Amino acid sequence: MSKRNKDFLLSVMSLVLLLTGCSATATAPDRQQNYADHPEAQSWIESMKAEGFTEAYLRQVLSQAKRQDSIIKAMSRPAEKRLNWEQYSNIFVKPKRVDQGVAFWHENQAALARAAATYGVPEEIIVAIIGVETRYGRITGSYRVLDALATLGFDYPKRGSFFQGQLTEYLRMVQEEQIDFAALKGSYAGAMGYGQFIPSSFRAYAVDFDGDGKRDIWNNRVDAIGSVANYFAEHKWRSSEPVLAPVVFNQPAQDEWFNQSLKPSLTLSQWREKGASAPLKFDENSPATLMKMELNTSEEYWFGLHNFYVITRYNHSRLYAMAVYRLSEQIKAAYQASQAG
């Protein structure tokens, strides 16, 4: 195998391990630490006491949290940055994942139809999100959420404040939902369930979609489906609008036009004035961001429209959003073909 092929294979393996909450070093014994004695923990404890939590409870929680070095290593390896769009799509937009998506749609047809009607989010988008996140619930993460959030909150200074906030949200969540704080498992970043919600997203967007009095995104597919749909609705998905528009260049494009922001800042009309246009069937008032998606030997050019931006609110990555949308297209086509047959 050539060095180039070996490097590519290592990049792909690293990304898959990261996205499934695992690590190549996860089987090695991780250094453990009692977070109740961590020097960074006392200020967090004081802030939580001000919100009504007792110090005894907080110390009990932190005493059971264990540092996981493999989580630090996973967060320090941004494998996605080493992959182009073609390499990334070859991980997620594959026939097996499409087939599994069709099966998931058939198995949960009623819940998906109701979610689409309730929240205005297409079934194929909901299915594709769950497919990319956890392969339809097959890979939801093996780390205790408590360990992940404590490790990143207190021993990953780059994003410590964010993850201390998620640990706070997590304790609110387990008390509200009456769940054992040490029992839940998820990804290396503390994301949980079929749709991989972090604690703040759970509290804001998870729904009891089957009406049994519980918001269960770990074991209840109906709740997971409704919660993903609600997430998109709350982030202003527009049911009647497209996701992407093709690009035609009427003059040489400038490098600074591309991949500048996930959030659109110009309309299609304004892009047309600059020399990059979409077919006239698209609303010229639509906000759009201009994207260059790199392939192994060429590039693709697309306008990301409002709904593309909404997908990136789930994961702030244009590669991720493109994979979700492309997978959704293939799942929808295959599902419709299975219905016709």
Rank of each mutant, 00 (worst) to 15 (best):
S23Y: 05
K96I: 08
L244F: 15
F181I: 10
D69S: 14
F163W: 01
E299S: 01
I126Q: 03
P122C: 03
K332W: 00
Y231I: 13
S2I: 11
A65L: 02
T140A: 06
R326H: 10
S201F: 06
D208M: 00
R67P: 09
T168E: 03
Y335P: 00
G211F: 03
E86V: 07
A224Y: 00
S70W: 13
S43L: 15
D37S: 14
G120L: 03
E133G: 03
S142A: 12
I126T: 11
G213K: 04
V127H: 07
I198Q: 11
V16D: 08
F202L: 10
G131L: 05
Y325F: 14
F249I: 09
F303N: 00
K332P: 00
Y119S: 06
A206D: 10
Q175E: 09
G275Y: 03
Q100G: 11
Y301W: 04
M13I: 14
Y88I: 03
V12I: 15
A79T: 07
L295H: 11
Y88V: 00
A128C: 08
Q100T: 14
Y35C: 02
L152P: 10
L58M: 13
T54D: 14
R313A: 08
M293V: 09
R172P: 05
S187E: 13
P122K: 11
E294I: 06
R238N: 13
A233Q: 13
T168A: 06
D212A: 09
W105K: 04
K158H: 11
M322K: 12
I198V: 15
